[in-house]
Design a binder for these strands. Structure first.
Length: 605
RNA sequence: GGUGGCGUAGCCAAGUGGUUAGGCAAUGGUUUGCAAAACCAUCACACGCGGGUUCGACUCCCGCCGCCACCUCCA
């Protein structure tokens, strides 16, 4: 298997991945998570999905991944042109609009985020990980760790307290500030847009602790006011001598939270830190400076890198940043109507966006709604190193692509069926195909998560399989391959949603005895109001009107089989109008029926 | 102004100093009672423009043009 390589923002080079774990087994990964003052948009999710694909690829390479993604519930400033703490916090703004306290607002949006993340199959919210609180730390629950770090920064001379009671990191004390982002210090100083705050020693200095009476979330560093009891107890343990007396009640700065949470959950140094490209500066630049200042964190350059073994003064060895998602080649904008949350696409009407529902309907989305697996595909189909231009058309292409994969997958499942083990051995042509496709898939993903090439390998394999008649063992191998692809892609509906009915089976069901026994165990059928009459007609081999069978909301296998039998009876009598009517009716009820040389294929959609 | 990046056939999107990426769409055909699915073919003598290096450049170098992002909370 090929070796995983990642584009490291820190060195701007493609580097071989090598975990810090001396056993080479465990990987620690921290992803900058959502700020929960609104619903997460598709750009947010592109970034989170990049992290999701990365951790799945790591697992594919045999690593055990401990992945942490935080919840930023402290909030950030909203008045972007007003420097520092004079603006209103975004969470506070949301709270004012929702008429409740900021903690509840944050929880509301966090819950919404989790629901969306689950729908999009973020593995960190699947299974056991979903309930593991340690993997989803909240910023408000780590004020103790943040203040402890701030105190260390002050004690070490990396930070200073100003008369207002705020604390700033002194950038001049960390000469490597700017290394990650490539920002030249002089450029920043020249930036006239940064309103110089008198209290700062240098305009580039950034806030670690802020004081603003208007802010709704407040913690007193010198008493338990504003604290959850557990958090306060922990703070006292972490800082038995308290923090600098000049620090006044307030709230943490923008960047300290991730340093604190990463350290608390994953330890002093980690393998991978991910985020969006906008995080590079200033957020991650500041994280690096803080962590070094407080704890002198450093990691060795990985094997094969020019600085192999030499210390990098950062707490993460690999910095991986996803490029932005654009709409109409611009950043998303609410004003231009190019701003989409995930739930806008899942159910536009419920989000008050009937216009979007119409556009989606026009793009071929039934009911004007985008299935989550289609959105997932659309957001991972491009390589993360390139900006992605999102559009109705790209969504429609994703839908078609997913459908092509799903159809192939369904047919393989049908071919394999429930049959147990078989001594039959797959032919070399299929074994070679599967082996080659999986190798190409892995090679592409290991090449800096090149998902377009990985998908090319998938579709090449699908195309070749579509040209073949597969035996049982071959279908089983091919199915195994598709499932392996899906371990990373996770876009397939893996429930048994389709079936194949042979002509022989249908023929036997048309016998009155068989038909009656088939009908008898159908609960819905038995509840039909005029069932005696219908019963007689069925026994006579007659076709009841489809509506007479309503309400049949759940088309289970037996129900579908019954209708297939009735339809085939009509077709045998060359009554194609009736046959087609049944097929159309089934479609309305979410079941697609296809005639194949072997028999009849049904797909629940 | 500073920094980083991008411009590949109708659309999306990999990749390479010299043999078909892949997907989507469209059109024609095979198959089908009709569909669906699938296959085949076409669109494809594709690589922003102009120079240069080279036996040969879409790929390397130089110069343009256009677009985007970051530099400010932002995935």
């Amino acid at each position: 298997m090929s070796v995983l390589k990642l584009k490291n923002s820190y060195t701007r080079a493609l580097e071989v991945f090598q975990p810090l774990d001396p056993r080479g087994e465990c990987v620690t990964m921290y992803s900058c998570g959502p700020t929960v003052y609104s619903y997460a948009h598709i750009g947010n999710f592109r970034s989170f999905l990049m992290a999701d694909v990365l951790r799945r690829v790591l697992e594919r390479n045999g690593y055990e991944v401990r992945h942490v993604m935080n919840i930023t519930d402290v909030g950030h400033m909203t008045e972007d042109h007003v420097a520092d703490a004079t603006g209103e916090d975004k969470l506070a703004k949301a709270a004012r609009e929702l008429g409740t306290d900021p903690f509840r607002v944050a929880r509301h949006f966090e819950d919404a985020f989790v629901a969306d993340a689950r729908a999009l199959k973020l593995k960190i919210y699947q299974g056991g990980e979903a309930g593991d609180e340690t993997l989803h730390p909240r910023a408000t629950a780590h004020i103790a760790e943040m203040l402890a770090a701030i105190q260390r920064l002050i004690a070490g001379g990396f930070a200073y307290v100003v008369p207002s009671g705020e604390v700033y990191f002194e950038v001049a004390k960390f000469p490597e500030y700017g290394k990650l982002s490539g920002k030249v210090i002089d450029d920043l100083e020249a930036g006239a847009r940064v309103e110089v705050r008198d209290e700062k020693r240098d305009p580039r200095d950034f806030a670690l602790w802020k004081v603003d009476a208007k802010h709704l979330m407040q913690w007193d560093p010198h008493s338990n006011v504003g604290w959850e009891p557990d958090d306060w107890r922990r703070f006292v343990q972490l800082c038995p001598d308290g923090v600098d007396a000049r620090i006044k009640p307030g709230f943490p700065g923008w960047h300290i939270e991730c340093s604190a949470m990463s350290r608390a959950r994953l330890g002093p140094v980690i393998d991978i830190h991910t985020g969006g490209e906008d995080n590079i500066f200033p957020h991650h630049e500041c994280e690096i400076a803080q962590s070094y200042g407080a704890y002198h964190t450093h990691v060795p350059g990985p094997h094969g890198a020019p600085d192999e073994g030499a210390p990098r003064n950062t707490f993460a060895r690999y910095w991986v940043h996803g490029r932005f998602l654009l709409v109409n080649n611009r950043k998303m904008s609410k004003r231009d109507g190019t701003f989409f949350t995930a739930r806008d696409l899942f159910n536009p009407v419920a989000e008050g966006r009937a216009d979007l529902a119409r556009d989606l309907e026009a793009a071929g989305f039934a009911g004007g709604r985008v299935p989550a697996n289609v959105l997932r595909y659309a957001l991972i189909a491009n390589q993360y190193t390139q900006p992605m231009n999102f559009s109705m058309e790209s969504l429609a292409q994703a839908r078609a692509s997913v459908e092509r994969l799903q159809i192939r997958y369904d047919k393989l499942r049908e071919a394999v069926g429930d049959t147990g083990d078989s001594s039959e051995v797959a032919s070399d042509r299929v074994l070679t195909l599967v082996e080659g496709a999986l190798r190409d898939f892995d090679d592409a993903l290991n090449d800096n998560l090149n998902t377009p090439n990985a998908l090319a390998a998938v579709f090449k394999a699908v195309g070749e399989l579509n040209q073949m008649e597969l035996g049982l063992a071959e279908a089983r191998e091919a199915l195994r391959m598709m499932e392996s692809f899906n371990d990373v892609l996770d876009v397939l509906d893996t429930t048994a949603r389709s079936g194949l009915i042979t002509r022989e089976q249908v023929q036997s069901w048309l016998e009155p005895e068989s038909l009656r026994s088939k009908a008898a165990h159908l609960k819905h059928w038995a509840e039909a109001p005029d069932r005696e009459q219908l019963w007689e007609r069925i026994e006579a081999g007659q076709l009841p009107a489809f509506d007479e069978l309503a309400p049949v909301e759940q088309m289970d296998g037996a129900m579908i089989e019954l209708f297939v039998a009735i339809r085939q009876n009509a077709r045998k009598a060359k009554d194609f109008a009736t046959g087609d009517a049944i097929r159309d009716d089934l479609k309305k009820r979410g079941v697609q029926l296809e005639d194949t040389p072997q028999g009849f294929r049904w797909v629940r959609g």
